[in-house]
Computed example of a mutant assay.
Amino acid sequence: MSCQGCVGAVQRVLGKMDGVESFDIDLKEQKVTVKGNVQPEAVLQTVSKTGKKTSFWEAEAPADPEGKPAETVAVA
């Protein structure tokens, strides 16, 4: 992701994805953290439909206080 247009595209696809409770987009780090009842591979595939290069973030994302895991996807 290199601009707000890229961020908007990722927001649109994640906003429509079933099971996504929330997501955080960090343009500077080029990563997206998704929380909800979703499969990591499904998130990766959905975000890749924006035409951006995607991969899982190498560091494991911590669980939130409610015990729900968070998946972090790097989007370039």
Rank of each mutant, 00 (worst) to 15 (best):
P69G: 06
T72S: 11
D26H: 11
P62R: 03
Q45M: 07
Q30K: 04
W57M: 11
F56M: 10
D64A: 12
E71D: 06
V13F: 03
D26V: 09
A63E: 13
L14A: 02
Q45K: 10
A70R: 13
D24H: 13
N37L: 11
V47M: 12
T33N: 12
V7H: 08
V34N: 02
A76H: 09
K16V: 00
V13G: 09
V43I: 13
E71I: 14
G15P: 03
K49M: 00
A9M: 15
K52Q: 15
G36T: 09
T72G: 13
G19D: 02
K53N: 10
E58D: 15
K28R: 12
G19Y: 03
T54F: 04
T54Y: 01
K49F: 02
P65I: 06
M17Q: 00
A63K: 13
P69N: 03
E21Y: 08
D26C: 07
K28I: 15
Q30C: 01
A42E: 15
Q4C: 04
G19M: 07
G19R: 06
T33G: 06
K49R: 07
G36Y: 10
E41P: 12
P65H: 01
M1W: 07
S2D: 11
Q11K: 11
L44T: 02
M1C: 09
K49I: 00
S48Y: 03
F56I: 04
A74S: 14
T33K: 13
V7T: 10
E21R: 09
G67R: 01
K35V: 06
V20W: 03
M1H: 08
R12S: 10
T72I: 07
V38M: 04
E41Y: 13
K68T: 08
V13N: 06
I25Q: 12
S48H: 04
K31N: 11
A9G: 14
S55F: 13
K53S: 08
T72A: 10
K52N: 08
A74Q: 12
V10M: 00
K31R: 11
Q39R: 12
G67W: 05
Q39N: 14
D24C: 08
V43Y: 09
S22T: 00
P40N: 13
G19V: 03
V73I: 13
A9N: 15
F23H: 09
A42V: 15
A42H: 10
A70E: 03
E66N: 14
S22V: 01
M1F: 12
Q30S: 12
R12A: 09
A9T: 06
V20Y: 06
Q39P: 10
S2K: 15
S22I: 02
G8H: 05
E66I: 10
K49H: 08
V32A: 06
K35W: 00
A42M: 09
E41I: 12
P62D: 04
V43G: 04
K53I: 11
Q4I: 05
Q11T: 10
G5W: 15
K68D: 05
G67K: 01
A42N: 10
M17C: 01
T50R: 04
E66R: 12
Q45N: 07
Q45C: 02
E21F: 00
A76C: 08
M17A: 06
C3P: 05
S48I: 03
Q45D: 00
G36N: 10
K31C: 11
G5E: 14
A9Q: 15
T46Y: 01
S48F: 04
D24N: 14
A70T: 01
P69C: 02
S48A: 11
V10I: 15
Q11D: 15
D64I: 11
A42R: 11
G15N: 01
